[in-house]
Nucleic acid binder design. Structure first.
Lengths: 247, 247
DNA sequence: CTCTCTCTTTGATCGAAATCAAAAGCAAAG
DNA sequence: CTTTGCTTTTGATTTCGATCAAAGAGAGAG
């Protein structure tokens, strides 16, 4: 089910708990303590990591890969409520059951901490709690941004918004950025995109085809996207000038 | 614009900052400090309390009345992203501009604290920060619950869900509860409901009429609602048995 | 009481996205 | 190379909610 990554002490630049997410202002002792505590788990694409309602005895942050948070109604309608990218945090200090399904959409590596000791550290270390509050507020903003999208945007605006988010996120990583040109691979299937946007997969496909026909994007295969002009794409999102905060 | 409520020391049972929201576990000194800090502001129905982008130099919690958080696109489409009921908290420790419009939908009284001293108290008092994290996580859950509604529910399910939420919230306050029967007044106009649910006001009106015709609810005037059988209403929401967490 | 203004209901029509259906593309397995 | 089992695209049709339009219902002002 899950294979453990070697968890001997690694000086892991990409481990967000240590280096970005939680501990930016912690002192050396606290960092060491976190370092001792952490362990890695990895998952295959498509694997469900946590089922809604499960007991959650750890918190974690994404090191590599992409996961989704989603909710499903009895009749099978599902809505994705969050996208977890590297450095994003999973888990609820103070809660013991998961509220959503967490599914790996690509091979995934997470950096985990058992919840109990992590919570104890939180009590002793106000910075960690504060940082967590900050991150939670960011997530809340993102969720509310998404509510506007789900409630009021057209299918074309929805797709454009999602592409813009991924493009921006990737643009900061990839090198393919020159004068508004961005190139990236979609990390989600059409169905996952539909579940995120509150659409059907057919509508997603059609709108992507339409954006392609109109020259807003170029497609190579099913996943490889080129945005020749980010401003043009942004115009399609319906957002005001400086756009969404999301992810 | 705003008239101040006498802010001499009041032993205010309904003031949530003091008695419920933030300070359940604080000791006497901290409570006194909060007590000294707080002041009240009241607003008329329809008044905009905070504009998105405004500088926010206070945090507050709702004592009486109802307010909404909403986002508006340039072309006027608006989506409500939160409903503030008594005891709910407004404001972002660590942020200085408001992300949403806050509008009073009924006469409103808020218990306010200047942000700076409140943040300082937070630093000294871990309980307050923790409580705030807990509250923020609740809001996040609520927002995500709403994402499912916005993305995947039908108009009828949306209306039923909103009615159920208000009914449940009111049921715990009002006396009109006997064997699943709940009576309450809608605190929102049809338009506000539409903005919350991602619908038009005409659709809201039509669906309410339909629920009435089908005996799921009874209406007296425009606002006064009787739910003869909560279970029946819950069946209409599309939620699984124990329903939403929202509000 | 009547006028005005706002909120709400209801009707007729339209349109965007859902649904139903089939074909095309592609990768892994045999 | 063919088969199998996806994911994706495209087409035809339907439907739910939006839009356009008008009438009813209160509440408050004069």
């Amino acid at each position: 089910m899950l294979k453990d990554v070697p968890s001997t002490k690694v000086d892991c630049e990409s481990c967000p708990i240590r280096h970005r997410a939680v501990c930016a202002r912690c002192d050396a002792d606290e960092l060491d303590e976190l370092e001792e505590m952490k362990y890695y788990r990895s998952f295959e694409a498509g694997q469900t990591i946590i089922w809604s309602g499960d007991k959650m005895d750890f918190v974690a942050s994404v090191v590599e890969g992409i996961a989704t948070l989603s909710q499903t109604m009895e009749d099978g309608r599902t809505q994705m409520v969050g996208l977890l990218l590297p450095s994003d945090f999973v888990g609820r200090p103070g809660r013991d059951t998961a509220a959503y399904d967490v599914i790996a959409t690509t091979p995934l590596v997470m950096c985990c901490f058992r919840k109990k000791p992590f919570e104890e550290l939180m009590l002793r270390t106000p910075h960690v709690g504060q940082r967590l509050l900050e991150m939670t507020l960011d997530e809340l903003d993102a969720a509310r941004e998404w509510m506007l999208l789900l409630g009021r945007k057209t299918a074309r605006e929805k797709i454009s918004s999602l592409l813009a988010i991924i493009a921006r996120r990737d643009a900061s990583i990839s090198i393919g950025t020159e004068a508004g040109r961005v190139v990236f691979d979609l990390p989600l299937t059409r169905e996952a995109m539909a579940d995120y946007l509150g659409l059907t997969l057919e509508t997603v496909s059609r709108q992507i085809s339409a954006l392609k026909k109109d020259g807003v994007i170029q497609l190579e295969g099913k996943r490889h996207v080129t945005v020749p002009d980010m401003d043009r794409l942004m115009d399609e999102t319906g957002d005001d000038t400086d756009g969404g905060i999301f992810v």
